[in-house]
Nucleic acid binder design. Structure first.
Length: 424
DNA sequence: TCTGGGGTCCTAGGACCC
DNA sequence: TCTGGGGTCCTAGGACCC
């Protein structure tokens, strides 16, 4: 039985989330900014039509925003995370075999559906997601994940498809791939694009028809997998169980330059707390802790400094106070006065399952049980009453370094606000 | 004043072992 | 005269994704 994949992709996800809760924005240009209100990370179709580019720095666009009446939001990740969960729960109603690929995308397996019914089935999925969550999606269907991705792109870019495109029953797949720039193929980034074009490969079809050996040599096995997938040979399986993360990072640019070690430590306390929460959420512990800090590379007239340091823990841990201690020690080593720092962060690696922690003979009677009970309590309180209900004194009270979020929408979906009814 | 924050996988090359 | 070679592990760096 041959495979059939669907890729469900939320249209302009963050912008759509904001619009669900303010229907007056329907048909109007909306953009969402990155952390620190730095650059554009999501745009409604109307904003795209104005020529606003993904990743464009916000400060360069202020005039355009004003002139064109663009509604601008700071990013509100608790809202988007919550909406994402609703979309994914809706999709789960339609198939047990599903991979949540990112905050706004999911792959579904449709292997049980008779081929002649697949397109209708997928249209029903699209309508249901829209009715239950208010989020518009595009859905592509193909024999491989790469083809499903390509199909979803066609669905999104051609309104006449009604947001759904099934490439498996299309008679002219060659023409479709002819019309797809090679850079639009999943897994082909800017470097590969430049390289491929040097060899006359400009379209998805040309890539599909390239020679295996040549592809293997220049694009490695990852490239060869893409080529096979374009030919309809499935090489990238559905990953239904999310694999535990192998590295967990938490970092943030500051809302303004930071000069003092004390403030860097405050920020670091927050980042380590976030990272350790993620660690515990997947029931694991980290053996290695990296810390980095850097100045603002865009300020060419200011002295630049960046550095990182690593420590190996005696015993893998997810205990926040311990991780904070190590991170602060590394920060003290790295810190040099006289610089204006832009960003710092922590990266946890060598992650092992909680129940496989190797105890060290040098650390007898390590106080595991009590520590993990305390952490569990903190995590439960913060999950119920909101992040930061319980936090560490060393996170500081004033927190002047926190990111700028000057255009935040209300937290519609979290604890204290009512959830508005979405009209069908 | 102002330029995101996460992640994954793959390869090459060196060290080390027998 | 002759100057192994294969396996494994680790690290750094590159490329990709959203």
């Amino acid at each position: 039985m041959s495979k059939v994949f669907a890729l469900v992709d939320c249209n302009n996800f963050y912008a759509s989330c904001e619009r669900v809760f303010d229907p007056r924005l329907e048909g109007k240009p909306v953009v969402v900014l990155s952390n620190n209100d730095g650059c554009v990370v999501a745009r409604s179709n109307e904003a795209k039509a104005l020529g606003i580019k993904m990743g464009a720095p916000a400060f360069q666009l202020e005039d355009s925003f004003k002139k064109n009446n663009v509604t601008v939001f700071s990013s509100n990740y608790s809202l988007y995370g919550d909406m994402s969960e609703r979309v994914m729960e809706t999709l789960e109603q339609f198939t047990p075999d599903m991979e949540v690929y990112s905050i706004d995308e999911a792959f579904l397996s449709l292997k049980g559906i008779p081929p002649s019914e697949v397109t209708d089935y997928v249209r029903r999925i699209r309508a249901t997601v829209c009715r239950w969550t208010g989020i518009p999606v595009s859905i592509g269907v193909g024999q491989t994940k790469t083809l499903a991705k390509a199909a979803s792109k066609i669905a999104k870019n051609n309104p006449r498809t009604g947001g759904v495109f099934n490439i498996t029953d299309h008679p002219e797949i060659d023409t479709l791939l002819d019309n797809m720039p090679v850079a639009d193929v999943w897994g082909i980034g800017p470097r590969h694009e430049i390289f491929l074009k040097r060899f006359g490969i400009h379209t998805a079809r040309q890539l599909r028809d390239a020679h295996d050996i040549w592809v293997r040599k220049h694009l490695t096995v990852a490239g060869l997998r893409i080529v096979f997938e374009l030919r309809g040979v499935s090489c990238i399986p559905l990953e239904e169980m999310p694999m535990p993360k192998k590295g967990i990072m938490s970092s943030r640019s500051f809302g303004r330059p930071v000069e003092y070690l004390s403030e860097l430590k405050e920020a670091m306390t927050t980042f380590v707390s976030r990272a350790a929460e993620k660690l515990r959420a997947q029931r694991s512990a980290a053996h290695i802790l990296h810390v980095f800090l850097l100045t603002n590379r865009f300020k060419e007239d200011e002295p630049q400094y960046s550095n990182s340091a690593t420590t190996v823990l005696p015993v893998s841990s997810s205990y926040t106070p311990e991780l904070i201690r190590y991170a602060h020690t590394l920060l003290e080593i790295l810190y040099k006065p006289g610089y204006r720092y832009k960003k710092t962060g922590v990266f946890l690696t060598e992650i092992v399952p909680e129940n496989e922690i190797q105890t060290s003979l040098l650390v007898p009677g390590y106080p595991y049980k009590r520590n993990s009970e305390v952490m569990e309590l903190v995590d439960r309180i913060n999950a119920r009453w909101g992040t930061d209900t319980v936090r560490y004194a060393s996170e500081g009270i004033q927190r002047k370094w926190t990111m700028r979020r000057e255009r935040l929408s209300p937290h519609y979906t979290t604890v204290w606000s009512e959830i508005p009814v979405v009209k069908a």
